[in-house]
């Protein structure tokens, strides 16, 4: 078993589930968004790990190098990072409006107020 070669994927698994735990188990809405960011970071790490090639360099041609890591996962993640900050900002904006409407950002307190 190749511990060193698979460590990045294990970190991905732990990070993914840590973020997921924050999303499902924490009642605080901002903590949920933080968990969502961690979840996204885990996926980013996974993709970038896929693209790595042993002995390769960053995919910029013309400096004498012949082996390159794959540019495709990098392109996907590059755009995803900027999209993730925009969507996180949208989530935070929703949280602010919820705070103004309900006076709380704890999930159970909000649901109590909504109960008929």
């Amino acid at each position: 078993m190749d511990i060193l070669g698979l460590y990045h994927y294990w970190v991905f698994a732990v990070l993914l589930m840590t973020g997921f735990y924050a999303i499902v188990a924490k009642p605080n809405l901002i903590k949920k968004l933080i968990g969502l960011s961690l979840f996204q970071s885990a996926v980013f790490l996974c993709y970038i790990t896929f693209g790595k090639l042993a002995g390769g360099t960053a995919p910029i041609v013309g400096k004498g190098a012949e082996l390159f890591s794959s540019p495709l996962p990098q392109v996907l993640i590059l755009t995803a990072i900027v999209v993730s900050i925009s969507t996180t900002a949208l989530g935070l904006a929703l949280v602010l409006r919820i705070k103004e409407a309900y006076g709380s950002i704890e999930e159970d307190e909000i649901q109590e107020q909504d109960a008929p």
């Binding site: 090639l53 960053a58 390159f68 935070l92």
Partner: peptide, 28 residues
């Protein structure tokens, strides 16, 4: 990311994740 040869992604993550995202969360 930088050690995994993704220089472009590392640049984006450093500017967005460590910079702008922190400011937005603090504002919220």
């Amino acid at each position: 990311f930088f050690l995994l040869d993704a220089a472009d992604v590392a640049l984006t993550e450093a500017a967005v994740g460590a910079g702008i995202s922190t400011v937005l969360f603090l504002g919220a």
